[in-house]
């Protein structure tokens, strides 16, 4: 999406940051913004996951806006 000129952000849990960074780099977009959420959330209820999403939504919007302006 970033290569097509669209603002793009990837969301990774902490356990997958290295994978996200390495793949972004391999695909030629090392500066791809990555929003990070805590890991694990497999044991969390859906409501807890929603709360987690609420907490990081501002970060995601900020990264999208930065990507768009950048």
């Amino acid at each position: 999406m970033a290569k097509r000129g669209l603002a793009a952000v990837t969301i990774c849990s902490t356990a997958f940051i290295m994978l996200g960074r390495a793949q972004a780099s391999a695909l030629g977009n090392a500066s791809l913004p990555i929003a990070v959420v805590p890991h694990p959330f497999g044991l969390s209820s859906r409501d807890e996951v929603r709360q987690m999403a609420d907490k990081c939504v501002d970060d995601i919007v900020k990264l999208v806006c930065e990507a768009k302006s950048g």
Binding site: A15, F16, M18, L19, A22, Q23, A26
Partner: peptide
Amino acid sequence: GGALPGDMDR
């Protein structure tokens, strides 16, 4: 493929 354990192989 670069799938090294602990890096991209999770």
